[in-house]
Each structure stands twice: as structure tokens, then as C-alpha cells.
Design a protein around this nucleic acid. Structure first.
Lengths: 137, 137, 137, 137
DNA sequence: GTGGTCTAGACCACT
DNA sequence: GTGGTCTAGACCACA
């Protein structure tokens, strides 16, 4: 379910955040569904509960989950999440920087468009594979 | 010449790296041209010399500059830089992740294409402004 | 009758307390009238009986209800409740802090007065709506 | 400089946040001025560095300070802070609840207005005292 | 020196 | 059981 890379530059709690976001936003975790408890996930990943706690707290702050003390942590509604302008703005800026650097490396507009097309096709393929994988589970 | 933003989450040495890359790859610093010395640049930017030193070392590792002991640091050739498959691969992966996250947030292929178009136009504008600015200097 | 919001940061027993207070103090629950039993309310709200129990105990401690062993929990008299200097003092202190923080954020006395006026009007509207709603029930 | 109340219902890191906000927003800590380092403040308050760290991180997230790794934490500009709509919204909601509860306790609009007037006068007095205090330091 | 992350283990309030 | 806070002490990257 989770793939932690301890050697990655991305810190553990950030990896938990981004992977949990993916589970929620792809619908694997549906609205109102309970996330594993802090202690449970910390056991599964063999990391400290505080690390999971930090990730969950940030997910709540960003509106991806909501917390009920004594009950647990639950996935928020996709409609709410998608209204998150901050996330969109950050992604746009990343995109801007990446495109600019590609042009610096000599890529033409046409080459970049071709690259994007390839990525879209691969992503589409990836999603189909994932869906088939989750169906069979 | 340089714009450091202390409030940015990007560390200072990373800002030096990306701005120096931009100067080289846009041709402001031509092949073989000498970069300011570590001490000089650290004085100009009022940052710690160690910080500039770290940026220069990383630029050399990535092939953007080469160091001649006793003489200083010089811009590498654009042809060499652009042959750097590692950089291209990393940018492609960043692009892939960013596009995927945008689709997660509900963006359609059409909306993403429109966004890319906007970014290209803004970047074109940006480069024109920069060129005019450097001409007058 | 009750509106629990699990997503709220306010804990469930606190939500029960404040809503029960509102029912008593607005006269929906009249002096001496019996509150639903702990078990009954916990079933209605689908929350843990301990949670309702905790809310009732706190309401009694604050003088809003009184318990007759074996019979249940009853609304106290408004006259008694309103003589509660502790509640008034706490609200005054909350008010003081809130007003001060608004001035910190740059609000002038005039802007705060305008804000208060708006809140009074909205509250008046709210109460009219609620009364109509309870009449039809 | 700081007054921590370990018995308070407000947690330590929240007390640090609110008191640091007050120092910034009242101008005791001016824009760009350095806050005490995490370790230093933790020593002063005899609390764990992690607790101070948590408070600083939240202050940064809310835009009251900005962080430069390796240099420290600095007060942000008042102009930026005052554009924080979230804080204003939360204070407005607190105000709404408080006013409503006062009316529940039998307060008339006139009595509440008189109370507000008293609080404004006391707060004005309080601020004059504080300014004199900081002048003499 | 600075902030940032992580572990280990404790205690609390809420359900 | 749940999440939330706190301590003690370690290690890392950055300036």
C-alpha cells in the first residue's frame, strides 16, 4: 500500500502526505472513509507515531482529511479538496520553472509538446493498470 | 544581476545555482567567460562565502562550469550542457508528477493545455523583458 | 433537533453542551422540563453514551440542568442560570481578547462597531428563522 | 518577556504562538527583526526545543514570520499579516458566538454596547501602560 | 551557529 | 481504542 524510500531527499512525513493524497484523490480512499490510525500506520511503516501524526496534521490543514478526536482520521470530500487554490498555484509555478529549464536546455516548443503528449499517454496507461490492479484486490 | 529572496523556501545556495544556470544558458555568460570569484560574489550578495562555494561546486558537478585551479571558475559550453541526459530525465519526471497531480485536482487535458499555453506566452514575454534589460546595462 | 458536525474542531460533548444550553436559554426546553435520557440521546445522535453522559454532567456543574436520581435530568430555571457570574466573566474576557486581536489586525473602532452591528442583525435574523422552524415542528 | 502558564488549557506551543503574534503585531518585534532562536527560546522558557519549533513553524505557516535555514526566524511585515482573511474570519465567528451567548444570559443590546465601551476604554489604558513600560526598557 | 527531521517513550482528553 | 501534546536526545543540511 505504501512505499517509503528512506534514502529519498523527500522526508518521511512528506512521502506519507503525498502518497495519502494520491490515495484520496484517486478515490481509493472514498469520502468519509477512515484512514489507518496514527499508531497502526506507524506500526505498518515501522516509523515513529510522531512522524505519522505530523503527516496527518498537515493533511488536515490542507483539507484532505478531517479529524475526530477519539474516533480517528477520515478522508474529506473531493469537491472540497479541488477548491484548494494554493495547491493549484504551486503546481503552476513548478510547471513554469520546469518548462523554462527545458527551453534553456535547447528544447523547442514542438519538442516540449511532443514530450507532454508522451507523458499524457503514459499516465493514461498507468491509470488503467492501477485500476485493474485494485479491481483484482 | 542576482536577486536573492531570503523569504523563499529555496535555500540560498540553490537560488545561486539556478540563477547562475540561467545566466549561462541564456548566453549572458558566454562559453569560457569567467564567473565572479567566490569571495567577490559573496561580498556582492552579502552571503557567507561557504554558501557561494557550495553553489559553485554543485554547478561544476552538473557540468555548467569548470574550475581552473588558481584562475577561477568559467562557463562551460552550451553544447556540453545540453547533452546532459540526467538533467533532461529529471525535468521529465518532474513534469510527469506535476501533470498527474493537476489531473488529480480535476484538471482536464484541455485545461492543462490552456495552462501550458499561458505559461509559454508569459515566459516569452519574460525573456523579452530580460533581454531588453540586459541590453541597456 | 441537534446538529452535530463531526468535522468541527469542537469536540462532540462540547457541541452537545452548547446546543443544549441554547435550547434551555431560548426557552425551547422550559424550566423543569425533562431532557432526553442519556441512552435515548446517544441513540438519536449515534454517539457513545459516555459522550452524552459527560455533556450532561458538565451542564449540571454549570447549573443549566439538575439531576434527580432515578428520574432523569431537568432544565433549570432561567433566573438561576442568568445569575451565573462565572459565565458572564468568562464571556467578557473572551470578548476582550477578541476585540484586542481585531485591533492588532488593523481594525479601527468604527470598523469593529460596524462588524458588531452586522452580527447583531444576522443573529436577530437567525433567531426569527429558528422560531419559525420550531413552531412548525 | 514571555508568560507561560503550564496549568492553562491552552497548550504551551499555542501560548508561544499567541504571545509571539502579539509581540509582532504590536510592533515590539519590527519587520525583519530576528526572533530568538529555537534553542535559545527553549532554554529561556525551559521547554523542549521541539515545542518551540512547532510554534515557530505554525507562525510561519500563518505568515507572521519567515524562516531562513541556517540564519533564523524573522518577523514578517505587518502589511502582509493584516491581509490574513482566515484570522479575521475566525475572530468574527468567535465574536458572533460570544455575543449570542451574552444575549442568552439576558443581556440587552444596550448592556452589551456598554460592556464593549468599557472594554475599549480598558484596552486603550492597557496599551498606554504597555508603551510606557517598553519605553523605559 | 541556525532550522528541520526523526525516534522513543510518556501523559492527557475524548469516544 | 483514538488523536494531541510534550520531553529527551540524536542526526542532518545550510550559513
Amino acid at each position: 500500500m505504501f512505499q517509503l524510500d528512506l534514502k529519498s531527499r523527500e522526508s518521511i512525513y512528506e512521502q506519507i502526505i503525498s502518497q495519502m493524497k494520491e490515495l484520496i484523490v484517486t478515490g481509493v480512499l472514498k469520502e468519509g472513509e477512515k484512514l489507518p490510525s496514527v499508531r497502526e500506520l506507524s506500526r505498518i511503516l515501522t516509523v515513529n507515531p510522531n512522524t505519522v501524526q505530523k503527516a496527518y496534521r498537515e493533511l488536515e490543514r490542507q483539507g484532505y482529511v478531517y479529524t475526530v478526536t477519539g474516533l480517528g482520521c477520515f478522508a474529506a470530500s473531493l469537491a472540497d479538496i479541488r477548491r484548494d487554490e494554493t495547491a493549484i498555484h504551486q503546481l503552476t509555478e513548478t510547471l513554469r520553472t520546469t518548462l523554462r529549464q527545458l527551453t534553456y536546455l535547447g528544447f523547442t516548443r514542438q519538442e516540449i509538446d511532443a514530450l507532454l503528449d508522451r507523458l499524457f499517454r503514459e499516465d493514461h496507461q498507468h491509470r488503467n493498470d492501477t485500476e485493474k490492479g485494485s479491481e483484482s484486490t
